[in-house]
Computed example of a mutant assay.
Amino acid sequence: MAYVFYLGEMQLPIAPSKLQLKINSNNKTTTLINEGEINIIKSPGLTDISFEVLLPNVKYPFATYVDGFQKADYYLNILERLKTSLEPFQFIVTRTAPNGDYLFGTNIKVTLEDYTITEDADKYGQDVGVSIKLKQYKDYCTKVISIKTITDANSKTTKVATVEQNRGSNKVASKTHTVKAGDTLWAICKKELGDGSKYKEIAKLNNISNPNLIKVGQVIKLG
């Protein structure tokens, strides 16, 4: 099975061979008198994602360099920006069979929790190994309530609560489309954007030199 990994706008040059997604539980176990333990079912918790990636300092023929060959520090700088930006980003993985058939994908908004950089000459040679941990991010909103005291002509006071504004993290993630068998860039733009003629614009956005050559499993950014 072949993988393609994206962290935000960055495609990893060498896809990790192993990926772990842990769907956490918020269920609560409690004890009832004369009934013993029961399990109170609650909505699932946030998903934890972990994997290890090799960042090459050597141009390997099996690696993919979307923006041309870049050494490890290029990707390390992007990881640092993802960590310090205090903003969530999209984590996207596409999976294809050896014959090129699209299998399934993962597309989830996440935060970069932590990462460990390892330099080991015996294991990695000139390259750098990075262990990455991500956590699912869900948009949320908080209501700001203002309580005012109103006094009428008879000196009677009344407290009135009003919602002044909403604050939260509701940034819209960039829209993407994973190429399936039979897709064309024109058809994707027609379906997703309502205008097939935008295929040249989308090709430029995704650094696609030939709009007629897109691959099954390829993730197309639409904006």
Rank of each mutant, 00 (worst) to 15 (best):
Y3F: 09
V4N: 08
F5E: 03
Y6A: 03
L7S: 01
Q11V: 05
L12D: 04
P13R: 02
P16A: 13
P16W: 02
S17E: 15
S17H: 05
Q20K: 15
L21T: 11
K22P: 07
N24V: 08
N24W: 07
S25K: 01
N26W: 00
N27M: 06
K28N: 04
T29S: 13
T30K: 01
L32M: 09
I33Q: 06
E35Y: 07
E35R: 11
E37T: 13
I38F: 00
N39V: 06
I40V: 12
I41M: 03
P44F: 08
G45A: 04
T47F: 00
E52I: 06
E52N: 11
L55Y: 00
V58A: 06
K59A: 10
P61E: 04
P61V: 06
F62C: 06
A63W: 02
V66M: 06
V66Q: 03
D67W: 00
D67P: 01
F69V: 13
A72C: 08
Y74H: 14
Y75P: 03
Y75D: 05
L76E: 08
N77K: 12
L79E: 09
E80K: 15
R81A: 12
R81P: 01
S85Q: 15
L86C: 11
E87K: 13
P88S: 07
F89P: 10
F89V: 14
Q90D: 10
F91S: 02
F91T: 06
T94I: 10
T94Q: 07
T94Y: 03
T94F: 07
T94W: 01
R95D: 02
A97F: 10
A97P: 04
P98K: 09
N99Y: 10
G100H: 12
Y102F: 15
L103W: 04
F104K: 15
T111D: 08
L112Y: 04
T116Y: 05
T118L: 07
E119I: 14
D120G: 13
D120A: 14
D120M: 15
A121Y: 15
D122F: 10
K123L: 13
K123G: 09
K123V: 15
Q126L: 15
Q126G: 08
V128F: 00
G129W: 04
V130G: 07
S131A: 15
I132N: 05
I132Q: 01
K135Q: 15
Y137W: 13
Y137G: 06
K138T: 15
C141I: 14
C141R: 15
T142V: 12
K143D: 14
I145C: 04
T151R: 06
T151V: 15
D152W: 05
V160C: 08
A161S: 12
R167G: 07
K171G: 13
K171C: 08
V172G: 05
V172A: 14
A173H: 03
S174P: 02
K175F: 03
H177T: 02
H177R: 10
H177M: 02
V179E: 08
K180D: 00
A181W: 05
A181M: 12
G182W: 03
D183L: 07
D183G: 09
I188L: 11
I188K: 00
I188T: 03
G194F: 04
G194P: 05
K198E: 09
Y199R: 02
A203T: 10
N206E: 09
N207I: 07
S209N: 12
S209E: 13
N210T: 06
P211C: 04
I214K: 01
V219R: 02
I220S: 05
K221N: 12
G223S: 07
G223N: 11
